[in-house]
Design a binder for these strands. Structure first.
Lengths: 224, 224
DNA sequence: TAGATTGTTAATCGATTAACAATC
DNA sequence: TAGATTGTTAATCGATTAACAATC
């Protein structure tokens, strides 16, 4: 059943496109607050340091949102991009592992602002279990499986140590959760039906160190 | 002065290559702990889900480290990759912004393990200034400029709110710091001599939501 | 209308993978 | 030696940018 209309397609957008669309959405929200009713691809691109053709192509992947000679309607495009990214609704999420990072992310406002609500938290250290953080009782990880369905948990934010990550990931998968945001510095093995996005903070800092170093005068790329 | 030897080059490696080399280094350290003296590109790739030709090509960007028929010497390659990434030494860093995320990252062990030592912390809220976190006194951001040189601060970890980020970035740049790890969800404008790596946690979660959504049965990419 | 800006095709650029001679 | 594996070139693939007809 091939036809010539290129939209909609049934393949998910490339990683890079989705990442930029998130940035467009954020910038559009800023423009809207500033009272801008219409935005052109070059305005949007300039604000983010992205080529205007790239902006148009990224948006065109999902449909036709603009008018030639006019640009894109700010408010309308915001609503459509939210729908595309899935942030037009709340995503009930579980946070697992209440070390320094986990405790911070439970309280982190940036998640809630974008529609991600942490509805349950888990940790396996006996001395943590039972106490509360940000009004949520800390439960043993075993209980995730029975909580997932009644609480509507769809995403898991994994903040456990590297050596526990795969084991906990298995429990997350067994609980029927299909999205994992992984902060542990290990590659997770999960079934094809489960999505994983990994964020390795130390890798980011390492990259920064490399960039700073490679700018120093006399820098040569080699191992000597 | 052109010659045929392709190594060393004086251009920094592509972003993607540096990111993967960080992963190789971590995996090699795991292999070393397991007692593996030699590693092949296919072993390394298999552990990380990366094509073996890609592994060889990435490493070859920086020099010749392996022997045909044998592989790469684990310990030796670890030392060389550390040197390449700049993590063969300590990087004194400042952390600015002691909200939830900032307070967590001051204590985060993952940074220190990789050679990043937070030696000073800053915040502009009067009620925070003077108190201590993780043995470090919280100082007003003004003092960064006078601290940077004596403390040898080379990197700044920015955890301030979005609306303060550019202003604080300017102060960081004015203090002579040439690397910024930015957690604020805004693009920073800095001189070409300063490197910025941005980590937007909400964008990562948004990407995850998109992936989960786009796997649901009947999913079509469009705005309807 | 004239100027502006889209959506899209074609051109360019860069990154990944395959293939294989060299060699341990 | 025979088998294994590197470093590298060539082939493929995908992503970015330029260009422009369509059109508001």
């Amino acid at each position: 059943m091939s036809h010539s209309d290129p939209h909609p397609t049934d393949r998910p957008a490339p990683k890079a496109v989705v990442g930029r669309v998130s940035l467009y959405l954020r910038q559009l929200e800023t423009f809207e607050r500033e009272g801008l009713n219409r935005v052109s691809s070059s305005q949007l691109g300039a604000a983010l340091g992205i080529n205007d053709a790239q902006v148009r192509k990224d948006l065109a992947f999902f449909g036709q949102f603009g008018s030639p000679g006019v640009g894109y309607p700010t408010q309308d495009l915001i609503l459509k991009l939210r729908k595309i990214l899935g942030t037009d609704r709340l995503w009930p999420s579980a946070l697992i592992g209440l070390g320094n990072l986990g405790r911070a992310l439970v309280r982190y406002r940036g998640f809630f602002k974008r529609g991600f609500q942490i509805v349950a938290v888990y940790d396996n250290e006996p001395e943590k279990i039972g106490s509360k953080i940000h009004r949520l009782p800390i439960k043993p990880i075993d209980e995730l499986a029975q909580d997932a369905r009644p609480l509507g948990i769809e995403l898991a934010i994994l903040c456990v140590p590297a050596d526990a990550a795969q084991l906990v990931a298995n429990q997350v998968v067994a609980a029927g959760i299909t999205g994992i945001l992984n902060f542990a510095p290990v590659p997770l093995v999960v079934p094809g039906s489960v999505s994983v996005v990994s964020v390795d903070l130390a890798v980011q800092l390492e990259h920064l160190a490399y960039l700073v170093m490679s700018r120093k005068p006399g820098f040569k790329v080699d191992a000597g």
